[in-house]
């Protein structure tokens, strides 16, 4: 029984990690700019499609028809020559193999630009407007992003293979000194979890230990006073929006081997991550992370057959149910500050 529960716990971690990363970005934006960003799921999706694009470029190939040889069907044999391998040899093959993690290097600058462009171009005009209008404009932007991706990449999911070395399962049970082959866990999910841990730790360290982060935290607490001290807080907040976009984008890139990305990936995750933010408490970064993992794990437990036998359909609604209860009983969420958005 312990093994089963531990396994479900592990299963919840990778989804929880994705929720936590998206919710972290959402909370960063809400805490600094006070904007409710419905386009954040779209940023996650854009990151995923950065990985798709990188792989597309890496796997470009030349096709030559060899008239000498015939394929098993009798047609002239098509010789496919991947360009990267032709130019770089074995190193090219490694590049293709590791295309997903490598995409992060390209995703970071792209998402930073997208985020800053979005904030400077559109969202900055909405600081003074109501939350409802912020929701509406970012919802519209999310639709636009989703449709652009759909018209470029088509409506079908595009699977992204994970690097061959990182396939298969890790025998976590054996590592922990338990019976072998009872608790096994896919390596890539483990990597995703560790990656999320590093990113979350990085964001917190950045906010906690750098001067820039200190100013941003001060601005979150009292924007006007920081402005009066002669600090250009707006610019820092813009950069924070870019950072949130980068976090969402990286989360999207690394998630592609687990879930083939398609154009409505963003919308699918958006609703859930909003729920996560609310459960954690609007504006609370630790709350967002904790709630992300908590809900991921809860969802994993709810999909156990033993649980489903007692509460049929619970796996479908558990997250929303938790959100409804939290909102009705404790509206500031698990770790929200007293008085912040406590209406």
């Amino acid at each position: 029984m312990f093994e089963v529960i531990f396994l479900q716990f592990l299963n919840g971690l990778d989804k929880g990690a994705a929720y936590a990363l998206i919710a972290l970005g959402l909370t960063l934006v809400f805490g600094t700019l006070g904007v409710v960003n419905f386009a954040h799921g779209a940023l996650f999706m854009l990151g995923a499609f950065c990985a798709v694009t990188v792989r597309m470029f890496l796997t470009m190939e030349t096709v030559t028809i060899d008239p000498e040889k015939l394929s098993p069907w009798g047609a002239p044999l098509e010789v496919r020559e991947p360009l990267v391998q032709a130019w770089l040899g074995d190193f090219g093959a490694v590049l293709v193999n590791y295309s997903v993690p490598l995409s992060i290097l390209i995703t970071i600058p792209i998402m930073l630009l997208v985020g800053i462009g979005l904030e400077r171009g559109i969202i900055k005009h909405f600081y003074k407007r109501t939350h409802a209008e912020q929701i509406l404009v970012t919802f519209g932007l999310a639709i636009v992003a989703q449709e652009v991706i759909k018209s470029v990449f088509g409506p079908n999911p595009i699977p992204q293979p994970m690097p061959t070395d990182l396939r298969g399962a890790a025998d976590i049970g054996a590592w922990l000194g338990m019976q072998a082959n009872v608790i096994t866990y896919p390596v890539w999910r483990l990597i995703y979890f560790l990656f999320a841990g590093v990113v979350i730790g990085g964001v917190f360290a950045f906010l906690q230990f750098t001067t820039f982060g200190m100013v941003v935290r001060a601005g979150m607490a009292d924007r006007e006073t920081v402005g009066l001290l002669g600090i250009n807080i707006d610019r820092r907040f813009t950069i924070m929006f870019g950072l949130a976009a980068v976090v969402a984008g990286m989360a999207g890139v690394m998630y592609t081997p687990l879930l083939p990305p398609n154009y409505h990936l963003g919308m699918d995750f958006l609703v859930l991550s909003f729920v996560v933010v609310v459960v954690g408490g609007m504006g609370s970064l630790p709350g967002a992370v904790a709630a992300g993992f908590l809900l991921g794990i809860l969802q994993s437990f709810a999909s156990m057959n033993q649980v489903k036998a007692i509460f049929p359909g619970i796996d479908q609604i558990i997250i929303y149910l938790v959100a409804v209860i939290i909102l009705l009983v404790r509206p500031r969420g698990l770790m929200g500050r007293r008085g912040v958005m406590e209406a």
Partner: peptide, 9 residues
């Protein structure tokens, strides 16, 4: 609840 919380509920 009102505002954004209402929307999310």
């Amino acid at each position: 609840r009102s505002g954004i919380y209402f929307s999310i509920l």
